[in-house]
Design a protein around this nucleic acid. Structure first.
Lengths: 217, 217
DNA sequence: ATAAAAATTTAGACTAGTCTAAAAATTTTT
DNA sequence: AAAAATTTTTAGACTAGTCTAAATTTTTAT
């Protein structure tokens, strides 16, 4: 078995590798896990010994197959619990992450299987992120950032790139929920802000900052 | 906040105090927590410093009001999660305890409140144990051991004193489930085993060992 | 190509929780 | 009431994960 802490490192390495290209650095891991680079170095040595990562000193880090398998298992648990919290208990998408950070470490395999069945085998978590398969595959999704949609197109909000409660609460306030239809009316040439019509009703101005973090199809 | 480990000690002290009379001893705690007496001594000093227990060296231990409040909170979480696992996910009453041992330490208050509501504010866990109130009171229940019921009486199975999977699986096998009606037909004078009729149907012999661990009303 | 800056690792220390072995206190037996 | 047995506590050590400070390696800038 692997510790709570090891699971968190693996998960974080996976996320950073997916978001950046190239190797994952010690410093970026330190920032993400809210620890210091020295602590990360120690842990990397340990994970490398256990063959969960490829690691050469000073050269950054990459998950081994086994490491990735474990990371995806943790991410799967996390996202399934998020669905439970949102769909069954009525938590907002801005509230579920923190609790799922704890729930993802509950060990029983059977628990995740049954929870998955109870939820009807969901494909996506409340933020639109795909749930890894039981076999340990991350489903590929092809979404576009709202900031890159051409004027006149009508698209649907499918996910977010930024997951902070503040951002999600902002979306709630403006009505930009998952699944809502967005017609791009105009792009401001100066600040790249976007004028959109939501669900064929109200018109809204969306800053480029927000548009870059909204995934649509 | 209190650590996972501290919560476990408080919970265990509560259970031991409820089951024995008098003070809870270092050795009994060591046995229950599967550690050594030396480790328990250390932890007791720490819990006493935090005013969660009354503790005089060599004299055993008793929860303070605050300590009991915390213990009951943990027990409440444990039992609510057990209800979820059994009722919603379909786990057997012999399977839920182990998972609940982990789930009981998830920190969010709001989570327990919402889970409780989702489950319809259950009063009892899958073993018939009462769920402490949100205010931190342990409901009193007055059950009798099946071994003490007089011949001719008809009673209902309300709970168990022994919680091991083996015992619970044995009850499953013989059909002695929670809520089932039991008519005491005869008590064997030699070994105190009991002859009972279940739900007005099949007749069964129940050893004294089993009868002593079955709670009825 | 070297110096300066930045990133990373090592060294040594700390905390929580555990252990074994030894010491001290309490309880039981005679 | 003293001796023996039992229980409990203390002392000192270990592990996982963290930290700061110092040393080392890599990268960037001149």
């Amino acid at each position: 078995m692997h510790s709570f802490t090891e699971e968190n490192y693996l998960k974080t390495i996976y996320y950073l590798a997916a978001r950046q290209e190239g190797e994952v650095t010690t410093n970026s891991l330190a920032e993400m896990t809210a620890t210091k680079a020295a602590s990360v170095s120690d842990m990397l040595r340990k994970l490398a010994e256990k063959q969960l990562i490829h690691y050469k000193k000073y050269q950054g880090v990459r998950l081994t197959e086994e490491g990735e398998r474990l990371a995806l298992k943790v991410i799967r648990r996390h996202r399934i619990w998020e669905v439970f919290l949102a769909e069954k208990l009525g938590f907002g998408w801005d509230e579920v992450h923190e609790m799922a950070e704890e729930l993802e470490h509950i060990r029983s395999e059977e628990l995740v299987r049954k929870l998955d069945a109870f939820l009807g085998y969901p494909q996506f978590d409340p933020h639109g992120d795909p749930i890894p398969t039981p076999a340990g595959q991350m489903p590929t999704v092809e979404y576009t950032k709202l900031s890159e949609v051409t004027v006149g197109a009508e698209v649907q909000v499918m996910g977010v790139l930024e997951h902070s409660p503040e951002f999600l609460q902002h979306l709630d306030k403006t009505g930009l929920n998952l699944g809502c239809r967005v017609l791009v009316q105009d792009v401001n040439a100066f600040d790249k802000s976007v004028s959109v019509q939501i669900n064929h009703q109200k018109t809204l101005f969306v800053s480029n900052e927000v548009a870059r973090n909204l995934l649509v199809n």
